[in-house]
Simulated assay, not measured.
Amino acid sequence: MTPELLTGAVGLLGAALGALGAIWAGSVTAKSQRQQAREQLEATRLQWRLDNKRDVYLSLLGSASRWQSTTWEFFHALESDADDGDKLALYRRKVERWQEFAVASTTAKVFTADTDVQAASEALRDALRALERVCDDWYHGRGNQDRESHTAAFRRGSRACESAMSGLASMIELSLGFTADSRQTGSPRH
């Protein structure tokens, strides 16, 4: 074999080895990039689910708070002997708020599997219904018509609602993975 052929053969062998090395490096890089893309996609999917869950829970808390506030307004209208038209308007708004809460509660049940949050939501609903019943009984003239007994029952019901609202908020924080540190930074713990 002549030195030129030998040099050419060695050069060809080197080029082949270089090409194989480049192909192998490219496949390793591509595999790594695919893994990173999968991990990024999974992280994005988890963040999307967390964001949607947070939105559902914010809606639930907001509708419960509006229902409670409207019930308080209605009670104060009854207590202050407000105009019948004002009482009727507040009564209707209270019913609308109940319907909003029912939708938010159902949405939370359908789109989340957090049984602790669902149980806390039901406890809040029951507390709000009991508070509402005090107002409705007074408004419709059912039961004892003594103002003081209605006021005392309403105060008891309000405390139960506050406790139930706090319980729901705590369960939501746990469900979303928030801790004292993450509340300050605004990001959940993982």
Rank of each mutant, 00 (worst) to 15 (best):
A64I: 01
R66V: 07
R66K: 08
R66P: 00
R66H: 09
R66S: 12
W67Q: 07
W67N: 04
Q68W: 05
S69T: 09
S69F: 03
T71E: 03
W72A: 09
W72I: 12
E73G: 13
E73L: 04
F74T: 04
F75T: 05
H76W: 15
A77S: 13
A77I: 08
E79M: 10
S80A: 09
D81Q: 12
D81L: 05
D83W: 08
D83H: 11
D83K: 05
D84P: 15
D84C: 02
D84K: 07
G85V: 08
G85E: 09
D86H: 06
K87N: 02
A89K: 13
A89S: 14
Y91E: 02
Y91K: 03
R92I: 15
R92S: 14
R93S: 15
R93H: 14
K94N: 12
K94P: 00
K94V: 09
V95A: 12
V95E: 13
E96K: 08
W98R: 15
W98Y: 15
Q99Y: 08
E100A: 10
E100Y: 06
V103A: 09
V103R: 11
V103H: 11
V103M: 09
V103I: 13
A104L: 02
S105E: 11
T106G: 04
T106F: 11
T106A: 13
T107E: 12
T107V: 13
A108M: 08
A108C: 10
A108Q: 04
K109P: 01
F111L: 11
T112A: 06
D114K: 02
T115L: 09
D116R: 03
D116M: 01
V117R: 00
Q118N: 03
A119L: 04
A120S: 06
A120V: 01
S121K: 00
S121Q: 06
S121I: 00
S121M: 05
A123K: 11
A123D: 12
L124Q: 05
L124P: 08
R125G: 04
